[in-house]
C-alpha cells in the first residue's frame, strides 16, 4: 500500500497477489471519516462499464455513491443520479458523498486473468 498526502488510496498491482481481497482504505476522503470499505466481490461479476469513462482520474467528476455491489446489479437510484446530474457513480448504498477532484478511482477488470488486475488510483 502506497500512501500519499491527500490521497485516498492506491495499490500497486504488482505487489498484490490476489488484489480483490486486499482493498484497504488508506486515508479519509476529503474529510469523510470512516467511509465504508466496499465489500469484496469477485472480479468476474463486477460491471466495469463506468471505467471506460475513467481513462484519466481527472475525468472522474467527483460524486461517488459507494457500497457493496451485488451480482449483476446497479441500483435504480444510481442510474437516476446519473440521469439527473450526468454523474458517474458506483455502488448501491444510498449515501452519496463528495470527494475532491481526482480523489478516487477504482477499476477492476473483468475477465479470466486470475483476479490480479486491480487498480486503485487517485
Amino acid at each position: 500500500m502506497i500512501r500519499r498526502w491527500h490521497v485516498g488510496f492506491e495499490v500497486d498491482a504488482e505487489t498484490v497477489g490476489d488484489a480483490i481481497d486486499v482493498v484497504e482504505v488508506g486515508d479519509h476522503l476529503c474529510g469523510v471519516v470512516d467511509g465504508a470499505v466496499v465489500e469484496t466481490v469477485v472480479a468476474e461479476v463486477l460491471d466495469v462499464g463506468f471505467a471506460a469513462g475513467c481513462r484519466g482520474a481527472g475525468e472522474f467528476v467527483s460524486v461517488v455513491a459507494e457500497g457493496a455491489i451485488g451480482v449483476g446489479q446497479v441500483c435504480v437510484s444510481v442510474i437516476i443520479a446519473h440521469a439527473v446530474c450526468e454523474i458517474v457513480v458506483f455502488g448501491l448504498r444510498p449515501e452519496v458523498f463528495c470527494v475532491g477532484d481526482r480523489s478516487v478511482m477504482a477499476l477492476v477488470r473483468a475477465g479470466n486473468d486470475g483476479r490480479e488486475h486491480l487498480t486503485l488510483s487517485t
Binding site: 462499464g49 463506468f50 449483476g72 446519473h82
Partner: peptide, 29 residues
C-alpha cells in the same frame, strides 16, 4: 448520453395536464 461509456437515453414526456413520464434506457450486462 455517452458519459462513462454508457449510451444512456432519457426521455421525458411532459403532458400539458401536468403529468410526466420519464423513460430511461441504461445499457448493462
Amino acid at each position: 448520453s455517452a458519459y462513462g461509456g454508457r449510451n444512456m437515453t432519457i426521455r421525458h414526456t411532459l403532458d400539458p395536464s401536468g403529468s410526466y413520464h420519464t423513460e430511461m434506457v441504461y445499457p448493462m450486462h
